[in-house]
């Protein structure tokens, strides 16, 4: 339960706003980091912390594309293939990546490690092709760099060491901000 596990962070986040409801997106981000996706129980948890009806949380999970309503792989490779990136080969890059992992966009590899999604502009058009993986940007990509990235992530998964942890950092800001 995130309410217990992240009590201090949640308190810090809620303290930022005059209205508790404003904490809903931050808590949904937190819940997704904890559970991998915004599961029904995760949404109900967030709703109960903020005194909302679960439907209100569900609504936001559907509106915002960063929330996954279905389980995804351990690493979600979100490749931008919007116009600016596409002019620099993003579509071809998506094809290459999919072929390499033997999946199509929105699918997850059998080992549960990787999901590929194509997304709209991520604000890194000058460094296309690029992708976002678990909140961090990988830019100026090509096949070689993509292989290296997959290698790194696989090694990380095997070793069980956490990847670059946005979660920890954001949590630390939450605590300090609220103080």
């Amino acid at each position: 339960m995130i309410a217990e596990k992240y009590a201090k962070e949640i308190e810090g986040i809620i303290a930022r706003y005059p209205s508790k409801k404003s904490a809903v997106l931050p808590l949904m981000h937190l819940a997704q980091r904890e559970y991998g996706y915004t599961s029904e129980s995760a949404m109900k948890e967030v709703a109960s912390i903020l005194d909302l009806d679960p439907t209100q949380v569900l609504s936001l999970a559907g509106f915002y594309t960063m929330f996954y309503e279905e389980p995804v792989g351990k690493y979600v490779l979100e490749i931008c293939n919007d116009l600016a990136c596409a002019l620099r080969g993003a579509d071809e890059f998506v094809d290459m990546a999919c072929k390499k992992l033997d999946i199509t966009p929105e699918e997850t590899t059998d080992d549960g490690l990787f999901t590929i999604k194509t997304v709209m502009c991520l604000g890194a058009c000058d460094r296309a092709p690029m992708l976002q993986c678990n909140m961090s940007f990988e830019e100026n990509l090509n096949e070689e760099k993509f292989d290296a990235l997959l290698g790194r992530l696989r090694a990380e998964a095997t070793a069980g060491t956490p990847s670059f942890s946005v979660a920890e950092k954001m949590a630390s800001y939450a605590v300090k901000d609220g103080a």
């Binding site: 931050p26 981000h29 960063m66 709209m120 800001y173």
Partner: peptide, 10 residues
């Protein structure tokens, strides 16, 4: 002063 993060909506 606080930061707030959206979640993917142009």
């Amino acid at each position: 002063f606080s930061c707030h993060y959206g979640a993917g909506a142009y």
